[in-house]
Simulated assay, not measured.
Amino acid sequence: MVTWRTARDIAARLGHLVAQAHAYRNHAHAQALLGRYAEAHADYDRALELYAEGGDLAGRARTHLQLGVVWERQGRHDLAVGHDQQALALYRAAGHLRGEADALNAVGWDFAQLGDYGQALVHCEQALDVHLRTGNRHGAAHTWDSVGFAYLHLGEQAQAAECFRHAADLFRELRDRYNEADATTHLGDAWHAAGDPVAARTAWTLARTILDDLEHPDAAHLRERLRTV
């Protein structure tokens, strides 16, 4: 965080508004990772002011997206969705397609957490379309997972499983093993909800193996699930 405070001070001396905004935003991100949410919100608010003064639409949008994540961590999806919707509007105004897709997925995820799975699906499917058109495979993988989550909670288990499989396959191709395990866990959840415990156990076992290889603590949760199903 010292680095970002130094960068902020240098940018202020130079009178560079957008550089100051970048430094405030990155300092806020570091504060949020440490759980210092009040300090993070103050820095994000200052970053938004500076981006607005500097006329940087994409910078404002990215800051709103990060604020959405912070509110989500605090369990306030009702506040997160407002920031993500502002990010969506700003990215569209800036003509920033990849940012638009990220914001669409974020809004969709917020709606899913708020229990509005229909709106979640609308936004996440739009995000997926943009990610696929722009070739953002990592964004597409995350969005396939979000679409699957919405379908699962709408009772469409087979459709959900297909989405989770797409997500897991993409993460595997991208060598993102943790998210591959996460999507594969969700695939198991979908098969379990569909009444196929054999397919569910197969998926959960694969996910557990990946997490064991990564020495990730989430493997313990899957071992417990496999013992009880």
Rank of each mutant, 00 (worst) to 15 (best):
W71F: 15
A87G: 08
G55K: 10
G75E: 07
E72R: 11
T3M: 11
Q86W: 13
R76S: 13
D176P: 03
H142S: 08
G68F: 10
G68W: 09
T143K: 03
A21L: 11
R92F: 04
L206Q: 11
A42R: 11
E215Y: 07
W109T: 09
L50R: 01
T209R: 10
G135I: 12
A190Y: 10
A40K: 01
H29Q: 11
N105Q: 13
A89T: 12
D189V: 01
V18L: 08
L90P: 00
R62F: 06
D145I: 01
E180C: 09
L114W: 05
L14M: 14
L48Q: 03
R227N: 13
L114N: 04
Q74K: 07
A103I: 07
H138N: 11
V107R: 02
A112Y: 03
G115C: 12
V81I: 15
L34R: 15
D43H: 13
F111R: 02
L214P: 06
A150M: 06
L65F: 10
L152T: 01
H216P: 05
G55S: 09
T6L: 14
H96T: 00
W4Q: 10
E53D: 13
N26I: 03
Y37V: 05
D45K: 05
F149N: 03
L132H: 04
H153L: 08
R13H: 11
V198W: 09
V70F: 06
F149A: 06
D110Y: 07
R201T: 06
R92H: 03
R225H: 02
A158D: 14
W144L: 03
A193T: 08
H22L: 08
T209V: 06
Q66V: 04
A112C: 13
G68H: 09
L222V: 02
A28W: 11
R177N: 04
Q74W: 05
A161P: 07
H64Y: 15
L67M: 15
G54F: 12
D212L: 14
L152M: 13
H27C: 08
A93I: 06
Y117I: 09
A207C: 06
R175S: 15
G108P: 05
A183H: 05
E100S: 13
V130E: 02
R133F: 03
L50V: 04
L34E: 14
G115Q: 14
L34K: 09
L17S: 10
V2N: 11
D145F: 02
N26Y: 14
D110L: 06
W144Y: 15
L152Q: 13
R62L: 10
G55D: 10
G148Y: 08
I210E: 00
A183K: 04
L128I: 03
A93E: 15
G155R: 10
A80F: 14
A93D: 14
Y178D: 07
E162P: 00
Y91G: 00
L226P: 00
N179L: 11
L187E: 03
D9S: 11
V147S: 02
E49A: 11
D169E: 15
A183E: 04
C163F: 12
F171R: 06
A28T: 08
D78V: 13
G188L: 01
Q113I: 03
G148H: 02
A161T: 12
A80V: 10
R172N: 08
F171Y: 15
H221V: 04
W4C: 03
H123E: 08
R13K: 14
G195C: 07
